[in-house]
Design a protein around this nucleic acid. Sequence first.
DNA 1: TAGACGTGGTT
DNA 2: TAACCAAGTCT
Length: 357
Amino acid sequence: MTAFSDWSESRETVADFRKTLLDWYDESGRTHLPWRENTDAYHVWVSEIMLQQTQVETVIPYYERFLFALPTVADLAVADEELLLKLWSGLGYYSRVRNMQKAAQQVMIDFSGQFPRTAKDLQKLAGIGPYTAAAIASISFHEVVPALDGNMFRVFSRLLKITADIALPKSRQIFYDKIAPIVDPVRPGDFNQAIMDLGTSLMAAKTKTTAESPFARFNLSFKDGTELDFPVKSKKVKQVQRFYAALVSESDDGARFAYTQRPTTGLLADFWTFPLLEFTSWDDIYEGVAAIYPTAQQLTIKPVTHIFTHQKWQIMLVKVETHGSHKNWTYFSDEDYEKMPQTTLQVKLQAALKENL
DNA sequence: TAGACGTGGTT
DNA sequence: TAACCAAGTCT
C-alpha cells in the first residue's frame, strides 16, 4: 500500500481493512447492547428508529419498555396511539413513533405481516429512509449495503479523505459508491455496526487517531495530519429565541388545571400543555399578561428554559383568574393529567408549578 | 433543497 | 453561554 493514496481500489487492502475491522469489532465492539442480542427485523427496526439522533444510553430503557409492551409488529399495528406516545414520552421527534405505527400497518397489510427483506423495499415503509433501510437489510437479512449514518460519513471521509459536503443530500451517492464495494460480503451487518462503534470510539467526532490505532494505517487524513478537517460539513442552523407566558388557571373547585392541545402538525403536535401566550421579547411579558389578566400573578422568578434543535424557549409561569369559558381550554385533574403522554417541556413546566404553588 | 423536528450531553 | 454533537426522515 502506498502512503497517502486511496486504497479503496486495492482488492488486497480492502480485504485487509475488512479483517482488521471485524477482528476489532469481535474483540472491542459493544456486543452487549440489547438490540444486538436478537437480529429479528422488528427488534432491529425499533432500535434503529429510537437511535436516530439519540444516544445509546438514552435509548436502552425505552427500548426494553417498548418491546415488553409491544413484542411483535402485529401488536404495534393495533396499539392505541396514547400508549405509543406514553412509551415514547421524553424521547423526542415524536413523528418517529407515529410513523412506526403506520409502517407496522403497512407490514401487516401490504407485506402479509412479514418485513420486506431488501433495503429498496424497506424504504417503502413510513419513517424508514436510506440509512434505516440499509441497517435493517444488512443486520437482519445480510444484504451487502452500507448503512450511511453520521458515523459512517465521518469514518470514511477521514479514512479516504472524501471531501464531499455531508450536509448536502447529493453527497450521499458519492459516499455510497465509494463505500459499497468495501462492505464485507459475508458479514455486512457486523461491518456496518463495527463502523458505528468505531465512529463512537477511536474515530469519534473530536478524537484524533493515534499511531497505535489498528486503523491508523488505513487513515489517509491521519497520515497527513488533516483528520479533524473531516468530515466537510457546511450547513449550520441558528437558534431562535422565543418568550412565553404559561398560564396556570385553576378550576373553581381548585382541583384541576387548564390545558390546551397543540396543533396537529408542527412542533410537539397534538400534545397537551398549559396555555401558552407568546411575546416578542422578555420585557413585554409582564405588561402583556397584565393587559389581558389584570390579577395575574407571576409564579416563577426564573423562567423555565427549554432548548429545541432550532429554538430556545423561555417560559414564565403566570397564575391567572379567568371569567367565562375559554373555548380551547380543558381542565384536567392531576390524576387524568398523569394518564396522558407528556413532552419534556410540559414535564418541566409542571415541576416548576409544583415547586412554586 | 433547506428547514423542521426533541432531547440530553459536551465543550 | 451558545454552539455543536448524537445510529435521520419528511416535506
